[in-house]
Amino acid sequence: MTEEIIIAGFGGQGVLSMGKILAYSGIMQEQEVSWMPSYGPEMRGGTANVTVILSDERISSPIINKFDTAIILNQQSMDKFENSVKPGGMLIYDGNGISRHPERKDINIYRVDAAEEAAKMESARTFNMIVLGGYLKIKPLVKLENVIKGLAESLPERHHSLIPVNEKAILRGMDIIRPVKEL
């Protein structure tokens, strides 16, 4: 099994840390992982993206241009990455701030309105965990217990009190994700 994912959105949405938690979760279940961020001018322009690969085998290229899954959190990223999903692959997006919805006919499309949901939760910063929950509902590649372990590894100890809130957000994401188009 190899899953090649791109997560793309604005800087500050927690795109990179969501990828990091996913990578840590993969390690917790003894998978090979790679985490390749955009850095530099791309980031300074306000958009951020990260390519995460989880695999049972040695990972060849950490840099890829076609993805099994694209998680898209703003319009710029929709414009940039909608066409990078492999045929039969999956696109997950947050409808908030999206003016042009995905148009591909050959991929599975899901919507998770995480920004709206995060505003209702006790911390709006759980936005990325809601998205992650939605993704894991559709593709349960990593077990929830390993995500929690991954969270504990990637968060500094002073923030470990936030783990239950994050777990709640993941479960919430699992509830609210809905299909837009399934093949």
């Binding site: 990091k20 990578a23 390690i27 090979e32 992982v33 790679s34 985490w35 390749m36 961020p37 850095y39 530099g40 990972i59 950490p62 840099i63």
Partner: peptide, 10 residues
């Protein structure tokens, strides 16, 4: 190079 410097792996 910058790609290997910035990427995370096991």
């Amino acid at each position: 190079d910058g790609a290997l410097g910035q990427m995370m792996e096991k």
